[in-house]
Amino acid sequence: MHFITKKFTELTTTELYEILQIRSKVFVVEQDCVYQDLDGKDQKSLHVIGFKEDKIVAYSRIFKPGDYFQNASIGRVVVSISERKFGFGHDLMKASIKAIEDQYQVIDITISAQVYLQKFYESHGFFKIGESYLEDGIPHIRMDKTNK
């Protein structure tokens, strides 16, 4: 697997289609959650794309500090269902954290994580902040990663 980071304007139409397809397949269909995925934030984020044999199988979008949270942020973290058994989610998080450090020169990151993935994100240095809340009908928690 290899990762690239692109601005929205650098995405090819095929890449954008595959990204939206994987996000819809997982967040809308698999998780049975009707929500507005196309939220107008893709244009100001950077896109971390994981390729396996020229097919997109992992994806996240990252934000500079102040664009989503006060800290930099990672969102829409997704791995194709058929590829999860290979640990690509961990590879994606490492690539996303590195992209934030490289692109924005910061290390403090805030995410809005689905509650059931708390241990996964803790394994990447994130810790829970506050109580859980509903986001699009799914329990979430705020998690931060800092070097303080």
Rank of each mutant, 00 (worst) to 15 (best):
I4G: 02
T5K: 10
T5E: 10
T5L: 08
T5I: 12
T9Y: 14
T9H: 15
L11S: 05
T13H: 15
T14G: 02
E15L: 00
I19M: 12
L20K: 06
I22W: 11
I22T: 11
R23N: 00
K25M: 12
V26F: 09
F27A: 07
F27Q: 06
V29D: 06
E30V: 06
E30Q: 05
Q31V: 02
Q31G: 07
D32L: 15
Y35D: 05
Y35H: 04
Q36R: 15
Q36H: 15
Q36G: 13
Q36M: 15
G40H: 04
K44R: 11
K44E: 10
S45F: 01
S45C: 01
L46H: 11
H47L: 11
H47S: 09
H47R: 10
I49Q: 03
I49W: 06
G50P: 05
K52H: 11
I62V: 00
I62T: 02
I62Q: 04
G66V: 00
D67R: 07
Y68D: 12
Y68R: 13
Y68L: 14
Q70E: 14
A72G: 00
I74Y: 11
G75P: 07
V77E: 03
V79N: 05
V79Y: 09
V79K: 07
S80L: 15
S80K: 15
I81R: 15
E83I: 01
E83Y: 10
R84E: 01
R84K: 03
K85M: 13
F88W: 04
L92Y: 14
K94M: 14
K94F: 13
K94E: 14
I100C: 01
Q103I: 09
Q105T: 11
D108T: 03
T110W: 01
A113H: 05
Q118S: 12
Q118M: 09
Q118K: 13
K119T: 08
Y121D: 07
E122H: 00
H124P: 00
K128H: 04
I129W: 08
G130N: 09
E131T: 01
E131K: 04
S132T: 00
L134F: 04
L134R: 03
I138P: 07
P139M: 05
H140T: 06
I141A: 11
M143V: 09
